[in-house]
Design a protein around this nucleic acid. Structure first.
Lengths: 208, 208
DNA sequence: GACCCGTTTAATCATTTGATTATATTAATT
DNA sequence: AATTAATATAATCAAATGATTAAACGGGTC
């Protein structure tokens, strides 16, 4: 029972709708999601949905906004801390692997909807901190001869790409390489060490 | 004029439809694409679209099937050749960077639609060769002590992730990191060497 | 010119879909 | 109990959408 019971007994209608919307939007994408799907998933009437959130658009922006900000903030926290860079790298990979193992469809959802609606990105992330301190940290470490010089965007792209890609490409890759779910999951688990190892070994001129 | 002229003068209606469909599907995704969008883009009547391709679904499968197989085959060709592994790695990155620079929306399109419809992947890629020879090559090189032992799926995932991710994440990353189009393109160009360098330096125990 | 066949078009259909309205129900307050 | 405000529901609307139909068009063949 549990989840079902909690959903229908303890949550307010408003929350039930938001939860259901998140589930359906993330699974099917904005365009393929019908307001009726959400209402059914939430176990409520379509009109209630419009009563709480004025439109499908509004509801969608709340859902994807939450996803994007959660993503964005964890990143700022990790790279804004004062640990050594190589620790931050391991933290990033480990934290995001855990998040995505719980929500494997979210990365594709966010990336896909962002591409279809780029100005939404700027609107929803407007107040989020930037990663400019990372730029400085990389520059300083490079000047001290600890790491090789590298554009901070290169660094972020490679780190994110390695971490996220296994989740967005699972259907295709697991088919092409004939891997079962368990084997695929085991590989992702392996990458918890492999990704940081690879990046650190490339980046650092003297091993940290 | 050129492209426009070629489209409306020399192409058959059938080809105009397929080209228009590819453009619209890739840009907006399956669910958000209306048959009227395609007809308008192709400069033809909606009924003609149904005359040549029985339904929106059929047309879509042709378009995405072409994308997926083109992707899949280039990969098989590169890794099926008999060049040294480190050359194949550089080839892979360089070839795919060129493809995606021309069609930056395709990776997101294929990945996103694949996730929403996983059995489509198996149906469309049914007859494509697998990458099993790569598995053997990695195993052999590892046994000879040339490279470190690594799961072939790890290898493919990391290589693809590094190459593809900059294209699927452009909206978000360029916003968060405040990069203009030119700067972003320059970074991708940098990665033509950086990605292979990083993978090779991690993989090879003695430099090749 | 008459006929035929592949193609194109305008008009239309049935269903789906986001949204609204008017009514009912519930819970709290007096 | 009566009143009121918040919430939920059934019924319905107008627009959008995938698909079809029947008629027109065009070019080749006899």
């Amino acid at each position: 029972m549990n989840k079902q019971a909690i959903t229908s007994e303890t949550l307010s209608t408003e929350d039930k709708i938001r939860q259901a919307a998140a589930k359906v939007f993330v699974t099917k994408g904005y365009a393929a999601t019908k307001t009726r799907d959400i209402a059914e998933e939430a176990g409520i009437n379509i009109a209630s949905l419009h009563y709480y959130y004025r439109s499908k658009d509004k509801l969608f922006e709340i859902v994807i906004g939450e996803s994007m900000r959660r993503f964005s903030r964890s990143m700022d926290e990790i790279f804004g801390s004062n640990q050594p860079l190589h620790v931050k790298i391991r933290q990033f990979v480990s934290i995001y692997l855990d998040i995505f193992k719980e929500n494997p469809q979210v990365p594709n959802f966010v990336l896909s909807e962002s591409q279809h609606n780029p100005e939404m990105v700027s609107r929803l992330l407007r107040n989020e901190k930037s990663l400019s301190f990372l730029k400085k940290e990389l520059k300083d470490l490079a000047e001290q001869g600890i790491i090789r010089p590298v554009h901070h965007a290169q660094f972020i792209l490679n780190l994110m790409g390695l971490t996220i890609f296994p989740f967005v490409a699972k259907s295709i890759v697991s088919y092409k390489l004939e891997l079962g779910d368990e084997e695929y999951a085991a590989m992702i688990e392996e990458s918890r060490d492999l990704i940081p190892d690879m990046i650190i070994s490339y980046l650092y001129l003297k091993k940290p």
